[in-house]
Nucleic acid binder design. Structure first.
Ligand SMILES: [Zn+2]
Ligand SMILES: [Zn+2]
Ligand SMILES: [Zn+2]
Ligand SMILES: [Zn+2]
Lengths: 131, 131
DNA sequence: TTTAATATGTTATATTATAACATTGTTATA
DNA sequence: TATAACAATGTTATAATATAACATATTAAA
């Protein structure tokens, strides 16, 4: 069951399935609790699967919340350009898919001489309902 | 010693002093260890000071590293628009101060109806030295 | 000077994440 | 088919990050 390009291992599938069913970011230990019936009994099993899923872009980590969400953006096969909208009221998180924004940020340069190959952007505010 | 606009309490000063002397993001427990000689003995004392310093924009949290860095941007009195450049090689973190970028992001709108009042952006790559 | 608000001190514990090592399964190839 | 190399899994323990809860002290305002 070695890892081939594009194939997911058993544990990776279990974790991804569960995250995809949720429509919101999930905490690692909440995932762990819920996949225990599927045989994943300890944190490393979940964290390994998450690490790999994040690496291949199927899952993103919401850094400000230490939570994980399935990628909703089909073009996002590698997780190197991510943007999220986060409501401070209801905690709803949405992946922003905005070509202008991603183009602007992917092309961003400053005078530091630094070569950027990845970014993560988190916007905070209030959604319609929460205003 | 109640908090007045612009004044820092004793513990806040101690923590900020220490962070400002470092030229890199510091972990909360490393701060704790180093301010113990000044009398801050337990995590809550450091985390409270950090919370407040972040709130007033004197310190920013680098979310992807769970680390704290002093604000280098004098206009950044409220910490609602932050951008950082992070080297994956040497871990050097620099606060980006780029009016065009901040103007673009502060004005960003999408069709979600969400009203954004804060963002945090983290760029990753390799600095000159690390290439 | 009473009251309210803010800050501090302290202990314990919750939450998030990784180290380390043994075992099993898979692929490649000798 | 052996056997070696690698990838994935299972398992226990522990590290690292962060907060709850409550007592006390300090300050500002009424
Ligand atoms: Zn995505
Ligand atoms: Zn909301
Ligand atoms: Zn700043
Ligand atoms: Zn570097």
């Amino acid at each position: 069951m070695a890892q081939k390009q594009g194939y997911l291992s058993k544990n990776q599938k279990i974790v991804l399935d569960y995250i995809e069913k949720a429509n919101q970011p999930l905490k690692a230990y909440s995932i762990l609790f819920n996949v225990q019936k599927k045989g994943l009994k300890a944190p490393p099993q979940v964290y390994r699967a998450l690490d790999r899923l994040v690496e291949i872009g199927k899952v993103h980590k919401i850094e400000s919340k230490n939570a994980f969400v399935a990628c909703k953006n089909s073009s996002c096969t590698i997780s190197n350009a991510t943007a999220f909208s986060i409501c401070d009221g209801c905690e709803k998180v949405t992946e922003i898919s905005n070509p202008k924004l991603s183009k602007y940020l992917s092309g961003f340069q400053d005078n530091s001489g630094m070569k950027y190959n990845k970014y993560n952007l988190e916007f905070f505010g209030l959604c319609k309902k929460c205003r």
